[in-house]
């Protein structure tokens, strides 16, 4: 059927917003709050969702995903907290140095790749550093529905413990903070053993922490459906390479500091995407021909797909070699 064909746009639906507050929280992390430019309420969202922030940086458009950390019940604002990454590709630096109250920006509708499992009898959260952000929204949502939760939050130092004091004060019985500089560590094994049946655990933080929680939970007999994680992959820099896009009939160059997806967009190709972090599957692209080596970094394709050389996720993955031809 095609009753009334409409061409799908890449990415999620967009919302025009105005920056309503910029709140530095510590040396590295700043919170940005947005209201809708048209004055309407934001769409409701489910805790764990992220939005993709569109930044106009000169003639370059940066698109970075951030977890929504405001209270899902408050439809007047959306808020994100951004950790400055001086070594990164510049999106977080742009937010920290250029974005001011009153600026007009564009956000996408919320997309949730890290939802609460609403069947859970209890939710146990493990956060590392800036990984606290989705849990802020989850806690707000569960507080409203009388959900059973607890948080274990590892931070480098008290000075860098984003929202640590606030959370510990508000929910003294449910929040446990661990400071690296005081050699405190999450007692993961004990925590995993002591949970009631029907508990779900959630982890958000650095890759090493996520792997540690998954591996330990598996070793302690936890079913994988009860262990949830979210890690946004930032595209990693790499050697420049050339790609032929056969549907678009152009050959493009991917620079050292841009992703394949960004290079396609720069050259005017309307390629699909949602998360831009290797998790949602939306950007999956067929390989027509390849002579070289893939650098797969996504969480979407399975090992078999990776080995086949027939698919690539352009938002995070790269290529080293002579020829790459994609069906795009």
């Amino acid at each position: 059927m095609s009753a009334a064909p409409q061409k799908a746009k890449a990415g999620a639906e967009k919302i025009a917003v105005t920056v309503s507050a910029v709140v530095p929280l510590n040396d590295l992390v700043t919170r940005f709050e947005f209201t809708r430019t048209d004055g309407a309420d934001f769409p409701p969202f489910s805790a764990g969702a992220h939005t993709v922030v569109e930044m106009r940086d000169g003639d370059r458009t940066r698109l970075n995903p951030y977890s929504l950390m405001s209270d899902p019940a408050d439809r007047s604002i959306y808020a994100i907290s951004v950790r400055r990454d001086d070594q990164g590709r510049g999106g977080s630096l742009f937010m920290h140095t250029n974005v001011k109250v009153g600026d007009q920006m564009t956000l996408t509708y919320p997309v949730n790749l890290f939802p609460l499992d609403l069947r859970a009898k209890k939710h146990v959260f493990f956060a590392g550093g800036i990984g606290i952000t989705p849990f802020k929204a989850m806690i707000a949502q569960l507080e409203q529905s009388n959900g059973n939760w607890e948080l274990h939050y590892a931070c480098r130092t008290p000075a860098l413990g984003t929202y640590a004091d606030e959370l510990a004060e508000k929910y003294a019985n449910k929040v446990h903070i661990y400071y690296d500089d005081q050699s405190q560590a999450i007692p993961l094994e004990d925590l995993l053993d002591g949970q009631p049946l029907g508990t779900h655990i959630y982890v958000c933080g650095p890759a090493g922490m996520i792997d540690w929680v998954h591996a330990t939970a598996t070793a302690h007999g936890w079913p994988s459906e009860n262990v949830h994680s979210e890690e946004f992959l930032a595209p990693q820099p790499g050697k420049p390479f050339e790609v032929r896009l056969c549907q678009s009939d152009i050959t493009i160059q991917v620079g050292e500091h841009e992703s394949l997806l960004e290079a396609m967009e720069r050259c005017g190709v309307d390629a699909p995407f949602l998360c831009r972090g290797g998790a949602c599957g939306q950007c999956e692209t067929d390989v027509v021909e390849a002579d070289g080596e893939f650098v797969h970094r996504d969480h979407w394709l399975d090992d078999e797909d990776h080995a086949s050389g027939k698919k690539i996720m352009p938002c995070v993955s790269r290529f080293i070699g002579k020829t790459l031809v994609l069906d795009r």
């Binding site: 009753a3 999620a12 639906e13 509708y109 949602l274 949602c280 599957g281 939306q282």
Partner: peptide, 15 residues
């Protein structure tokens, strides 16, 4: 795969 990616604000249909 398509349905898992249906997004808020962007409904779909079929007959």
């Amino acid at each position: 795969k398509f349905l898992l990616n249906v997004q808020q604000g962007a409904p779909a249909r079929r007959l």
